[in-house]
């Protein structure tokens, strides 16, 4: 990745980033190595992490119970660090479909899903998801039956949500790894549901 030192024309904010970073390095507050290591760690945080949690909950009833009771602890059981925040898993059932949003900014279960997609941070999603979720989900191609209640969870800096989707029919004999393969990021945000084809 290393494009440090190659000073091509900058935008104002890129210039600010480079300048701030150099000042912090000069002051001994950060080092370039630490910044690079953090960027690498960030790349490693992908939705596959959340998918592991979901697949475990689908295959082990006791784990699912622990996940719903205390998602932070249940993730840590799988070796996933959840630094300093309260994580809540919300379970989809035939009666209730859950979805997450952060109306004020962009809070998101980053440790499990990585950096949020652009649309999650967009004005249109943030504004409308809490007012007309059924219409917004339809725009994602997800039609929730009229008889199913939709519950939208507004995240905060200290409390993040993860949607535990329903295990699709036809996966009864699948093992955990194969199940994890169909759990998409969007399914864990609640704007999609897992399908046997993984689509």
């Amino acid at each position: 990745m290393n494009d440090q030192g190659a000073y091509k024309p900058f935008t104002y904010y890129q210039l600010m980033e480079t300048s701030l970073r150099e000042l912090l390095v000069e002051k001994g507050i950060l080092s370039d190595e630490q910044v690079n290591a953090e960027v690498a760690a960030m790349r490693a945080r992908q939705p596959e992490r959340g998918a592991r949690v979901v697949a475990r909950a689908w295959t082990e009833a006791a784990y699912k119970k622990r996940l719903l009771a205390n998602a932070t602890a249940a993730c840590e059981e799988l070796g996933l660090e959840i630094p300093g925040l309260h994580l809540v898993a919300v379970e989809n059932t035939p009666q209730v479909h859950n979805a997450i949003v952060c109306t004020l900014c962009s809070c998101y279960p980053r440790v499990l899903l990585g950096i949020p997609p652009d649309w999650y941070k967009s004005r249109n999603y943030r504004s409308r998801m809490v007012r007309e979720p059924r219409a917004v989900l339809a725009e994602f191609g997800l039609r929730i039956p009229d008889g199913t209640q939709i519950r939208v969870h507004d995240s905060t800096a200290d409390m993040r949500y993860l949607v535990l989707p329903m295990r699709p029919k036809g996966t009864e004999d699948w093992d955990e790894a194969r199940l994890a393969g169909i759990v998409t990021r969007d399914a864990m945000i609640g704007v999609a549901v897992p399908t046997v084809t993984g689509g």
């Binding site: 910044v35 652009d118 967009s122 504004s127 994602f140």
Partner: peptide
């Protein structure tokens, strides 16, 4: 902005450039 009127959700994504990651 929660609950305010707004437009259709555009499902945009982009690959974050290095400076944003930093």
């Amino acid at each position: 902005m929660g609950g305010q009127p707004a437009g259709k959700v555009e499902r945009t994504e982009h690959d974050y450039p290095e400076w944003e990651r930093r």
